[in-house]
Simulated assay, not measured.
Amino acid sequence: MEKAVLKLNIKSVFPMLILALFSANLAADDSQPSEQIVVATWHEIQSDILKETRRYAVSLPPNYDQNESEHYPVLYVLDGHSVRIKGVVGMVESLSHYDLSQRIPQFIVVAIESDNRNFDMTPTQNDLAYNGEVLQNMKHNSGGARKFSEFIKTELFKDIDSKFRTNDSRGLVGMSLGGLLAADILLNSPNMFSHFLIADATYIWDDNYLNKTFLKSQQVLNDAKANVFIGLANNDHIGEIGIRNRQWGNDFINNLSTINNEQLKVTSKYFADEQHGTVMFLAFYYGLIELYGTN
């Protein structure tokens, strides 16, 4: 009889012990202060050039506050929406961490938001078209790249440099239409940035705009001092448009490589297994290491 009672007591008590231990662990966890992982902070700037208020997000290196005498390179990221901010900042912080052998230096990352990217990042007023076929109606909402670039150069640089400890190194990262804008800045104001990371740009814009513009920009590039990485995706799955976009991308790379200027360094990588929609972070990863690699 006593043996039966003992079994009953154990069965009754055991769940209570588990519950008590679990509750104790929860209480211990609750007693710890919760700490948020902050990726970046939003800032605003009133632009006289654009006649509007613009937002940008800033991520500082993990040891920024501890190293008060240190000045950092700045990486400007186009299409700076929240998803891209988190992705790029995570990649930059990981690659600069000792866990990954500190492949690149630490950066101040500035992600520039664009509510109307079609306008901000296109250098001419036109539809997105190929071979006479309109792919996207953009003629009345395009052509704002020069003003947007001037805003970055004249207003945003000044704002960033006044608020944060920057050095002379400025990198620009752009994908798709953002790559188009980055390439256009390279052709027209190559010394605006020291590093350009151009991922699968829209080379079909305005019937091969970038290569036609290159022919007018050779003298400017002769005096440029910049490191350039260009990533290309395999878009053969969409037919002639995708094939031609890569062809014109290769033409752009080859044209840049003909410039007789040792201070203009151009490297590239073709991602045969990636499409436009999947190439971005691979291009960013290899591009950052190629442009800034410390070992």
Rank of each mutant, 00 (worst) to 15 (best):
D207L: 03
L8G: 11
E68V: 12
F271L: 14
Q36V: 13
L180F: 00
M138N: 06
K265Q: 11
R103D: 03
A182R: 00
F284M: 06
G293W: 00
N235L: 07
H43K: 13
K147M: 03
N126M: 14
D127C: 13
G239D: 04
T166M: 12
V39M: 13
Q275C: 13
E93A: 10
A28W: 02
D65T: 11
H71L: 06
F214R: 01
N131I: 06
I198K: 04
N118Q: 10
G277D: 09
I238K: 06
I152Y: 05
F148A: 02
S82Y: 08
G287T: 07
S47R: 02
G143L: 07
N227F: 13
M91F: 11
I152Q: 01
H43M: 09
E240P: 06
H97E: 05
K139T: 14
L78F: 05
L95F: 12
E240Y: 05
H43F: 15
W248A: 01
Y64R: 02
M16R: 15
G249Y: 05
N63F: 12
V110G: 13
S101A: 15
E133K: 15
Y203T: 05
L135H: 10
L75E: 02
R170C: 06
E52D: 11
N245Y: 15
G143N: 09
V77C: 06
S149A: 08
Q125T: 10
S69F: 11
N116Q: 10
E113H: 12
K147I: 02
S142H: 07
I37A: 13
V89T: 06
Y285E: 03
D159P: 04
E290Y: 12
V173G: 01
D251P: 08
K153D: 01
F281P: 10
K265I: 15
Y72Q: 00
G80I: 11
V13A: 11
T122S: 07
F281S: 05
H97P: 03
S268W: 03
H276R: 07
S94E: 05
L17W: 03
I253K: 03
F157N: 00
Y56G: 00
E274G: 00
M91G: 06
L291W: 05
E262M: 01
L282F: 11
S34L: 15
S162C: 05
L172Y: 07
N188H: 02
H71G: 01
Q102S: 15
G143W: 10
F281D: 04
I112E: 04
I243D: 00
K158H: 09
T154A: 01
R84D: 02
G178P: 07
K216E: 05
L95W: 08
Y72D: 01
R165G: 10
S69R: 00
Y56A: 04
H140S: 04
H276P: 11
D115C: 15
R170P: 05
E113W: 12
V279A: 05
Y270M: 08
E93N: 12
